[in-house]
């Protein structure tokens, strides 16, 4: 069983209202050292077999069509994680 992880972030020039709300809440916890927070999305796409080139190509297509909107978001990383004998992805 393999997984492809897709990370999507709002474009740098786009105001991120959710990130701003989180940024405004942090000082209430006494955490006042963070000047900016931006909030993105992480998708984990799991397949039965290994993450082949074909699976990666499909993940790229999903990332660019459904998972992100190119007008307001960037796909910042597409990462393949293969499961190995120890049961933890990508560790050995």
């Amino acid at each position: 069983m393999g997984t492809v992880i897709v990370d999507v972030m709002p474009k740098p020039e786009i105001l991120d209202p959710q990130g701003k709300a989180v940024r405004a809440a942090l000082p209430r916890l006494g955490l006042d050292g963070f000047t900016e927070v931006r909030q993105g999305k992480r998708f984990e796409l799991t397949v039965d077999g290994e993450v082949t080139e074909e699976v990666l190509a499909q993940a790229r297509q999903a990332a660019e069509t459904l998972l992100s909107n190119p007008i307001i978001e960037d796909v910042v990383a597409i990462t393949a994680v293969q499961e190995c004998a120890c049961g933890k992805g990508g560790c050995c």
């Binding site: 105001l15 209202p17 959710q18 701003k20 007008i71 307001i72």
Partner: peptide, 17 residues
């Protein structure tokens, strides 16, 4: 319509949240 690219641009959350 924006997500379909029939119209340009996109909508994000209101600036006052």
């Amino acid at each position: 319509l924006c997500e379909s690219h029939l119209l340009p641009g996109a909508m994000i959350k209101n600036n006052h949240r």
